[in-house]
Amino acid sequence: MKPSVTVCLPSLLEPVTGGVRELTVCGGSLREVFADLIEREPRLRPHLFNEAGDFRRHVLCFHNGTNTRWLAGPAAGDDSPGGRTNGWDTPVDEGDTILFMQAVSGG
């Protein structure tokens, strides 16, 4: 039985999910969690991920409060194509929280 985690979505994505902001998905790693999320809500895929399978440029994802961009990997923080997936093999535990946000910058 793989751990179940809670995924929280930003309000801007309510039209995509029919108003759902919080989902329970399963996976042993972040990569499996993301795959299960898209399996359950396939319409989220083009909004969270780009054609290379990486996060869209201004999509932020936090695992228990830690930006997944900074998780340990071959090149943490790498912005090259696919570079932001480096930490996606990080294990997850039962009850973990995955929070998606949009990067807010500028004025």
């Binding site: 801007l12 994505l13 083009p46 869209r56 201004h58 990067a103």
Partner: peptide
């Protein structure tokens, strides 16, 4: 047709 600078386009 909708679009977001962050989340991209979609058809509803």
């Amino acid at each position: 047709a909708v679009a977001s600078d962050i989340y991209g386009p979609a058809v509803f």
